[in-house]
Nucleic acid binder design. Sequence first.
DNA 1: TCGTCGCCTTGATCACGATCAATCCGACAC
DNA 2: GTGTCGGATTGATCGTGATCAAGGCGACGA
Lengths: 247, 247
Amino acid sequence: MQVRSNMIPFPLNGTRQAQGACADCGVKSRAVCAGLAPEETGILTTIMSTVTLAPNQLLFEQGDLRSRAYTLTSGMLRLSVSLPDGRRQIAGFVTPGDYLGLSGEDVHTQAAEAVTACRLCSFPVPEMNRLMEQHPRLRDRLHELTRKALLEARGNLLMLGRLTPNEKLARFLLGLSDRAVENGQPATPLALPMTRTDIADYLGLTIETVSRSFSALKTRGLIQLADAHRVEICDRPGLTALAGLPV
Amino acid sequence: MQVRSNMIPFPLNGTRQAQGACADCGVKSRAVCAGLAPEETGILTTIMSTVTLAPNQLLFEQGDLRSRAYTLTSGMLRLSVSLPDGRRQIAGFVTPGDYLGLSGEDVHTQAAEAVTACRLCSFPVPEMNRLMEQHPRLRDRLHELTRKALLEARGNLLMLGRLTPNEKLARFLLGLSDRAVENGQPATPLALPMTRTDIADYLGLTIETVSRSFSALKTRGLIQLADAHRVEICDRPGLTALAGLPV
DNA sequence: TCGTCGCCTTGATCACGATCAATCCGACAC
DNA sequence: GTGTCGGATTGATCGTGATCAAGGCGACGA
């Protein structure tokens, strides 16, 4: 168990009505909005506000009432579940275009915190539900995203239950790299904005083991570290093979 | 890694047109069908056939094309993902009323095998998709089941990543007990139709550790074992506390 | 410039769960 | 009855990843 770093459980500091709207949004091809008609995104705009978060700021906590749904437009969040004794599991890292609120419970079952500075679109849940009823495409899109999230979560079960530390780290890096590509960034070098503690809590390891696994992948010539938060993937096939993933 | 028991990868031996239909179905209150109008279940019946599986018989394999969706009406299945070297992770046990096909991919990402003798309703995927478009309640019901599955999978991430063997087993037993209650059976004694190998692959442990954890829970007076496949939960609050679950 | 503070890495040791191995037990065949 | 076989339990030992500990490194402020 590690001591958590300075969380900032303050109310959101940057909520305001949306203005610039969705026309020039960088994630509109991947977010909920993808495939919506212009007038539908227009309607989304009417119920939308934007939120900004500073690094480590809390968006919501386990047990909070869920009153809003979100789309991340820039930055990175972590979703985590914690036990009373401090053990923590990070269920996933949220990257631009991802939607928060797919599981649709009344009360949040996980916490969401900013890894880096974040910008989000925020929608009131009741209005969102109403819109879903009126706009089949929006509803279908959310269903589709839910299915994808389910696939990802199930994939992570194998990772947590049966992979070795090196295999876990290889999978983690490849997953991040794929996401970077989806977001129009190069596959390598790869930014790792989260701390080693975050990575450890995502992979079910300790920070020391994560650090040693980074060193092991370096020694094998699979990756290079410019600094702790910047990875170059030198041998993608090798990394893929280590992760036990199909070519 | 353990050697797998006698799998039977034969074609299904009991596929036939449905006849008795849904009227006297024991799971209609929990399955996809729940909340559908009588004429809607009638339409489901027209595209449905039934399947029976013998213990350890394969319903589908990782990588198979997904041509049908299923509802389990009796028995128990395991969903598993395997690595080429034989390591296996069981993503979940399927109990009556559960639906197979929520994640909606074209190709199965996991295998489904019978733990006990099973009976299922089977629906062709294209027809099912067509019905979903025409019948909002069916579509909403599937979306709802997908959300529930997502919540369950995410809950299991914490279990696999951060719980000790005893805690894992406590959670597993409580989860099974809750499901038994949902299916109208007593919370205890609890039937454990799966083998220790299955439990181990579900919890990310070895069979020996599972067996030792059973013994540990017995010693603590939390459970009793009539035989290896029949558990009495003696101290539910104690078990819940050990599992780290809210009272 | 130096000192502090987070965070990361590396080394030494420990301990928990894996592995190896022996036995047990019930089911089934003969 | 006896023998075999699959699965579960229990014991002994091993090894990987956790824990404990020290040091490094970069950012920031005095």
